[in-house]
Nucleic acid binder design. Structure first.
Lengths: 185, 185
DNA sequence: CTGTGCATGTAACATGTTACATGATTCA
DNA sequence: TGAATCATGTAACATGTTACATGCACAG
């Protein structure tokens, strides 16, 4: 008991639950899960592939998922992972419980805090670039939303979160631009 | 050349810039900076004190800040850090440049994706708790906003970001609740 | 026959958290 | 006198990224 290698019985790292969530709707390979996180999980949780493959092997060792080796139709062979009963139970327990408000790490907000260090022109240019970036992201989410119906409530709500979040960010950029424009210096 | 201990000339870790931003408006101690991040920087960047003190010593070693040792009026003595000219230049350069869209890590969105695993009652209860949590956070930001005027555009805009972000999150929670309520199962 | 996408994997590094550790001062 | 707040610090651990590495298959 107390094996340091074993996660302390119950506390799994978030990534493992994210991967279970990705496998939940359909069996997927590590490569597909990575892609899935980059699109569907874009504003939820996304990691590089180098973290995905080890995590999948741990999940399989723990009996939460099982793999099937397929000779790739095109490309090399790949491992397709699917849920086990234990995995579904694990995921259900995780979905049911709560989690603390997510920590936010956004350097741009800090930049705005220090806008007094910049000329008005430089500040305006920057906030307009940031706005354009989020506008593009908003359009991505809107396009995705258009492909989803109410018969897929999960993906639709995830996409709605993206839409609402980006709209709020854009509205903030507009407030920043207005205040910078009005400033005396 | 190529000293592994030295950061590769130019690429500082984000925390260092955050600390510079915190010192920018007024000299502060490590303890005060930690508190400042927990309130003003709540939705920007916040770390534990154990990361703060080493980072401050690095910043001082690089000549971006300077410390003054004060015998604490109450409590033990503390180091108050203030900006140097080099530090102000460093911060200005950082504020002027852009950064990629911040990565988002929010487990709750993934939970909603998997709400089909929960009973309607459990799902509704959870999303209402999440909503209440963000409502409380919104009220915190609104209270803070009320103490700020347009003569402090930086802190005001940072707080506005908090307000807009929480309002958007709450609106999303309402959409989730509505869709869960309407679902057939 | 070369680039692009598919597909997996490892090692070194970056950056943070948790827990442990210390000690003064103030207030009840 | 004992808890709460001020104030700083270290060590072990967690969790991710970047860069390196490999190799197939298809399209142009």
């Amino acid at each position: 008991m107390g094996n340091l290698k074993e996660t302390k019985a119950g506390k799994e790292k978030p990534l493992k639950h994210v991967l279970l969530a990705g496998i939940h709707s359909q069996p997927r390979s590590g490569y597909e899960l990575t892609k899935w996180m980059q699109v569907a999980g874009q504003h939820c949780w996304s990691v590089e592939h180098s973290s995905v493959y080890p995590a999948l092997r741990e999940l399989e060792a723990d009996g939460f998922i099982q793999s099937e080796r397929l000779p790739g139709t095109r490309g090399p062979e790949r491992s397709i992972y699917s849920m086990t009963v234990a995995g579904r139970e694990k995921l259900t327990a995780w979905v049911a419980k709560g989690s603390p408000r997510p920590a936010i790490k956004d350097e741009q907000i800090l930049r705005v805090l220090c806008f007094d260090l910049l000329s008005r022109e430089t500040a305006l240019q920057q906030i307009r670039e940031v706005r354009a970036d989020h506008q593009a992201q908003l359009e991505f989410f809107l396009a995705r939303q258009a492909t989803l119906g109410e018969h897929q409530p999960g993906p639709l709500l995830v996409t709605r979160r993206g839409v609402l979040a980006e709209q709020a960010y854009i509205a903030w950029c507009d407030e920043v631009e207005e205040m910078v424009t009005r400033r005396s210096a």
